[in-house]
């Protein structure tokens, strides 16, 4: 009976969260459209850039008509944009002439997912466990070391950390490559190629993961040190539980609530890439593409990346909402 009611409530909550996410996404996409229309500069001029002196006003006007730029921004162009985006048509790149933005993004996506995804897995496994343990044994040796070093890592800019890693492990010692995803001389045999890729991946992953570990340790430790002062932990001790049972059965689940929210929100950035780290390592991911597009004023590509970022953040929020509902019965 109670189960039925809570299931109904759960599906209601899920429905509401889904509607909220869709509305947010529409707003984000519209704002994204507006942002690139208020930037000074006429796309038609941009398309014909380089040949500006010899282009006539008629030719520009013809281009404007060709691309539909002569029609009103609202509603015609917005609706067109939203409709096309919905179908995966993000327009054409300025820099990479004639190439679809969606294709460019999908080409770069695997490298970014490998980099940020791997860094997240390492940071979640290492950082969360270390943070929970540090909070459980507050004031202990591990806590002191973890707290100081994680605060340092958390507050260090990732690009600077990246440079330190390159200097230490690449330039000076020569242990690992510090540039790109493949060596120019690498053979095309699949196993060697994979090993070469992983070697190139090591330092960028370390740079992203270290910052994330700092963040997870700080948050998990704070959550755990709050939980250990709760009355239900005294109850658990009174029940004659061992420290291990108190930690596993009572403390961890409660301390994980804020941590899970943070993890799910961070997952939104897995597809957006780590712009500064990718730039420092010349990693061929979305972050690198963002920098390239910025330098070339490639507005369609930027617009596509922003939309992808917005969509993944909205999706991550939706996921966080649902995960929290499963973990904490009070918000169901």
């Amino acid at each position: 009976m109670a189960g039925q009611a809570s299931r109904n409530f759960m599906s209601r909550r899920l429905g509401l969260a889904l509607i909220r996410a869709i509305v947010t996404l529409l707003i984000v996409a519209t704002l994204n459209f507006i942002l690139f229309r208020v930037i000074p500069g006429d796309p038609a001029n941009m398309l014909l850039a380089g040949a500006r002196s010899s282009v006539t006003a008629e030719q520009i006007e013809a281009q404007r008509q060709n691309w539909g730029l002569d029609r009103p921004l609202f509603p015609d162009q917005v609706v067109d944009y939203l409709w096309a985006s919905l179908h995966g048509d993000l327009g054409y790149s300025f820099k990479f002439r004639g190439r679809q933005v969606a294709d460019l993004i999908f080409e770069r996506l695997p490298a970014t997912i490998a980099l940020v995804g791997l860094a997240q897995i390492i940071a979640i496994l290492g950082g969360v466990m270390l943070g929970l343990y540090a909070g459980w044994r507050r004031g202990g040796a591990i806590d002191n070391i973890a707290t100081v070093s994680s605060l340092a890592l958390y507050s260090t800019p990732a690009f600077w950390l990246a440079m330190l890693l390159i200097v230490t492990f690449s330039t000076v010692s020569g242990w690992l490559p510090g540039y790109g995803a493949y060596s120019p001389s690498a053979s095309i045999a699949s196993v060697d190629r994979l090993l070469d890729y992983l070697k190139h991946l090591a330092l960028p992953v370390a740079a992203v993961a270290l910052g994330l570990i700092g963040q997870y340790v700080v948050v998990a430790r704070a959550a755990m040190s709050e939980v250990v002062t709760e009355d239900y932990m005294v109850t658990a001790r009174a029940k004659g539980l061992t420290h291990r049972q108190m930690l596993m059965h009572h403390a961890c689940r409660n301390a994980m609530l804020p941590v899970v929210t943070l993890i799910t929100l961070n997952l939104g950035y897995v597809v957006a890439g780590a712009i500064t780290v990718e730039a420092v390592f010349a990693w061929p991911g979305i972050g690198g593409l963002t920098v390239e597009a910025l330098n070339a004023r490639d507005y369609p590509v930027l617009q596509g990346i922003f939309l992808l970022l917005g969509a993944s953040i909205v999706a991550a929020n939706l996921l966080a909402d649902l995960a929290y509902g499963i973990l904490d019965p009070r918000v169901r």
Partner: peptide
Amino acid sequence: TSVVFQGAMNALNPVH
């Protein structure tokens, strides 16, 4: 020896 704590809201684990 067992204990009945005061204000059982916080003495019970909210997630179980």
